[in-house]
Write a protein that binds this DNA or RNA. Structure first.
Lengths: 205, 205
DNA sequence: ACGAAATCAAACAGGTCTGTATGGTTAAGC
DNA sequence: GCTTAACCATACAGACCTGTTTGATTTCGT
């Protein structure tokens, strides 16, 4: 038995998503399949039979691990959110320079994401857009996800000695969400650079 | 027979949406019901039976006017897009001042929209987020809708004598889309002012 | 090697989905 | 008043939906 740390699947899968990663057990295979189908074809449009079939598992196994389709969606969002953040902060950790450099680099990293042929937008935004307006569960999941990024932005703002760090957090929210959606709608990754130019000007040329 | 130009339905319905407007014929009743249900509960999650029931029409009447659910979605987006633009440009027409004033005022108008309890985000963005990545029909519908707004932005940029008017168009796209999505996810209309501050700084304080 | 837990395929229950067909009823133009 | 078109309720077809059940089989810890 050899542990394939450098398997092809691991090497070729986009780092910002769980889709395509090695799955050792049926539960992870279900999560992988569900993530792929939910994100590429929509949450409501994807049935559990399709997910189990794609995962190569029995439907009963799916329901043994996830109480309902809704819980499966929650689990997919949580895992996919973590995968994205790991990738994002991993890229960010390699950026050296001032906080301003790092804040601007955020949009270079987003451009990488947008350029991937498999880019399908932000799963949290897509899920909220699809759901009933009153659905607070998805909104909370999105809030948790974004709060991780916002904390980092706030730290940069404080390191810059800004009086109201939260202002920068909110500005970055608009620019990041705007770049994501504009890139998704138009299939044009250049919107990342557009957002970058706006934050650069805001932080002083 | 009196024509009720000042009926309650007309007075109380939000101006930025078709939802709640008077419908004279079954076709318009179907469009009204479909718009409301699609936008509030999602496109895939809403069935044609529910739409016909809500519209007070027979399902056969629905299919007499719209060849398929997909065509109905197209018609809803087109009509709702036009309603929104009529409202938006109507508001914009009342703004007096320089092009910079008008460009900034865009976000005050968006704030009105976001503040409405019935705000459900941009139907085009939501539809694209819900659909298969390869669906070009929805992307084209969104492109047509946004192009009307973009043309106006470009005119302002040219009036300002900017060298590259298209740069401003793209910046506004990021800020408008970002404000819409941030407001939708967080239920906080203040993101309009955040976007406004960014464009104000870009156009010179 | 044995017992427990996990997984499997397949069928089932009870709805709901889109789209069509049938035949009766209303409304409008001439 | 008659004709024609629009609209109505209802039922149907065939597929798909979520979730459960059954009982056989495989995996795994010990």
């Amino acid at each position: 038995m050899t542990i394939e740390l450098n398997s092809d699947a691991f090497e070729t899968a986009p780092a910002w998503t769980c889709i395509g990663r090695k799955a050792a057990n049926p539960k992870d295979r279900v999560l992988n399949a569900a993530t792929e189908l939910f994100c590429h074809h929509g949450f409501a449009a994807t049935g559990v039979d399709t997910i189990a079939s794609r995962a190569g598992t029995a439907k009963s196994t799916l329901y043994a691990h996830f109480k309902s389709k809704e819980k499966l969606i929650d689990a997919v969002l949580e895992r996919e959110g973590k995968a994205w953040r790991d990738w994002f902060f991993g890229r960010l950790g390699k950026i050296k320079g001032t906080p301003k450099d790092k804040l601007c680099a955020v949009f270079d990293i987003l451009a990488e994401w947008f350029s991937d042929p498999e880019f399908y937008g932000c799963p949290f935004i897509n899920a909220i857009g699809e759901a009933t307006s009153e659905n607070e569960t998805l909104r909370n999941a999105a809030k948790v996800h974004k709060s991780h990024v916002n904390l980092w932005i706030q730290a940069q703002a404080m390191e810059l000695g800004m009086e109201r760090p939260d202002d920068l957090v909110r500005e970055m929210t608009v620019l990041v969400d705007g770049a994501i959606v504009a890139a998704q709608v138009s299939r044009d990754s250049d919107f990342a650079q557009v957002a970058k130019s706006l934050i650069a000007r805001r932080l002083g040329d």
